[in-house]
């Protein structure tokens, strides 16, 4: 055992234990750590935004370099604070409208390109390929079988899942059948995603345990 002499490591370790104490039940140590975290992060972000955005991109260009155009974004930002004055609170809607407008304008064509057109192209694969069939016949293995059924499975999955999200008709008949297959694909996808998340959560725990056992207690390298 080689305990850390660093008081910051001790503080971090104790705060970790305070948060983990929630696993037993809610208690004052957890509450104290929670409030500290919330307050600390709010303060940290205020400083980060001031030094990385407001000061270099607004204060310096406007007041030190005389770039008057910066008044416009500056004013739009200040309008948000009008919410504190109920009589003129409506002014803040201008900023919100500007923000939403710019966001939508930037993202709609980009989303159409990245998420729809490219993905559509990726799905337009040959349903049946002689080449993968030959590979499977010559070398029947799990990998070659996967390659053989992978594309048809993907195409069926896309079409059936799309039909599940069709809201204009009752899910009966062919549409009902397709959407039921679609929900199976969705659930398999969710299962894969769930498995990945279990892995992620364990990784977070491993990271903390490594910190406690290595940096704090010094029982492992």
């Amino acid at each position: 055992m080689n305990l850390s002499p660093d008081p910051w490591v001790w503080l971090a370790a104790l705060l970790t234990l305070c948060i983990y104490s929630f696993l037993y039940k809610d208690n004052p140590f957890y509450k104290a750590a929670e409030h500290l975290f919330v307050g600390l992060s709010a303060g940290y972000f205020l400083v980060i935004y001031w030094y990385n955005a407001v000061y270099p991109d607004m204060v310096v260009p406007l007041f030190k370099q005389g770039k008057l155009l910066c008044i416009i974004p500056g004013l739009l930002g200040l309008f948000f604070f009008f919410r504190f004055i109920p009589k003129v609170g409506w002014v803040s809607r201008w900023s919100i409208a500007f923000y939403i407008g710019v966001g939508a304008g930037m993202s709609i064509p980009a989303t159409m390109q990245m998420r729809i057109l490219e993905q559509m192209k990726g799905t337009m694969q040959p349903f049946f390929s002689l080449e993968t069939w030959h590979v499977f016949v010559e070398n029947p293995s799990l990998a070659s079988f996967g390659a053989l059924i992978g594309i048809p499975l993907m195409i069926v999955g896309v079409m059936c899942t799309l039909s599940y999200f069709f809201f204009s008709r009752e899910h009966k008949g062919v549409l009902g059948g397709m959407s039921r297959i679609g929900i199976i694909f969705l659930m398999i996808g969710f299962g894969a995603s769930f498995g990945y998340t279990v892995m992620a959560r364990i990784s977070l725990l491993i990271g903390r345990v490594q910190f406690l056992m290595s940096d704090w207690l010094g029982v492992i390298d």
């Binding site: 990245m114 993905q119 894969a192």
Partner: peptide
């Protein structure tokens, strides 16, 4: 992170 890894597989297939 592993949580979001599954989301990104479709973009590998399209070379994005």
């Amino acid at each position: 992170t592993a949580v979001s890894a599954a989301d990104y597989y479709p973009f590998l297939q399209t070379d994005q």
